[in-house]
């Protein structure tokens, strides 16, 4: 990366709106918690303690043994939330990587290759688009025993079509741009044009789509787990926690509310950062036309 690109990134960090700074701090705090807290001995999401069932969190009962209370079979809610968060982050991140790699390569194949290949790829994408994603997920998850790996692969693979369409559309329009012709006229090779003009132009929409997909994959996993067709107990997931806490909503509301807040924060921060990235990566918006 050139020095100037670096300095332009630094200026955009300096110009970051306070909201985005808060988002970054929150997101990093959540990532740090998910990465480092599980190494602490005190963090144990599985051990049951029937004597300490439904303990109140410390902000309600200062004498409580559990910082964020405990669930109906006496498992530490803080530990479970941390594990659930880690689970969401892992599924989200790996799912996005799978989706991006698969979608971008198929999109490039479709856009650059053209012909029958293009028709087939786009027909499959359209077919998938026309069936509700949750329905496909439920069918797949019923056929295959859901585990974290299965969730990552399924959610990742199913998100391919957004990228593929985006990349294909961009390629088709960029290929006809006069600056591509101009670059060719000044001696550029086709490979050079694919990397320098096509990739550079589609990089920022891909980054923006990835961040918005990150939150949608996290939400999908939680939705499935909440519906009971995602991760199965004893696995820990924010969706599962929200779902099982529902039964005790009237008496022990924190069982539902705390994981819900964490999930909401995770989704809101990632999408706001995604929006901000879109603005920063667009040179026309960045400098003000």
């Amino acid at each position: 990366m050139s020095k100037r690109a670096l300095s332009s990134i630094l200026t955009s960090i300096k110009k970051m709106p306070p909201m985005i700074i808060i988002c970054f701090i929150l997101l990093f705090a959540m990532i740090a918690a998910a990465v480092f807290l599980p190494f602490l001995e005190a963090i144990d999401p599985y051990t049951q303690n029937l004597l300490g069932r439904l303990a109140k969190p410390r902000f309600l009962d200062p004498a409580s043994k559990y910082v964020l209370g405990s669930d109906p079979i006496g498992r530490d809610l803080l530990s479970r939330t941390v594990y659930g968060l880690a689970c969401s982050l892992v599924i989200g991140a790996l799912g996005v990587i799978i989706g991006t790699v698969l979608g971008v390569s198929l999109g490039m194949l479709s856009g650059l290759g053209g012909g029958i290949l293009d028709n087939i790829i786009m027909a499959v994408a359209e077919l998938q688009q026309s069936i509700p994603r949750t329905l496909i997920l439920i069918v797949v998850v019923v056929l295959v025993r859901p585990s974290v790996t299965v969730m990552i692969v399924v959610l990742g693979v199913l998100s391919w079509n957004g990228y593929a369409r985006l990349v294909r559309g961009q390629i088709l329009s960029i290929r006809e741009e006069e600056y591509v012709l101009c670059s060719k006229a000044l001696g550029a090779s086709q490979f050079y044009i694919a990397v320098k003009h096509v990739l550079k132009n589609i990089a920022s929409p891909i980054i923006v789509l990835s961040t918005s997909n990150l939150s949608s994959i996290i939400l999908s996993e939680s939705t499935l787990s909440f519906l009971g067709v995602g991760l199965q107990p004893p696995a820990v997931s924010l969706g599962l926690m929200i779902s099982s806490g529902r039964d005790h909503l009237a008496t022990s509301w924190w069982l539902t509310i705390i994981p819900s807040i964490v999930l909401a924060l995770l989704v809101i921060t990632t999408s706001l950062i995604g929006d901000w990235l879109r603005d920063v990566l667009d040179p026309q918006l960045r400098h003000g036309a």
Binding site: E177, E178, Y179, L181, C182, S183, A185, L186, H197, K200, N201, P283, Q284
Partner: peptide, 15 residues
């Protein structure tokens, strides 16, 4: 070498 009609579209907006 060649120069084109529309200088806006003949230059890549991202560079």
């Amino acid at each position: 070498s060649m120069i084109f009609q529309e200088p806006m579209t003949a230059l890549n907006p991202v560079y």
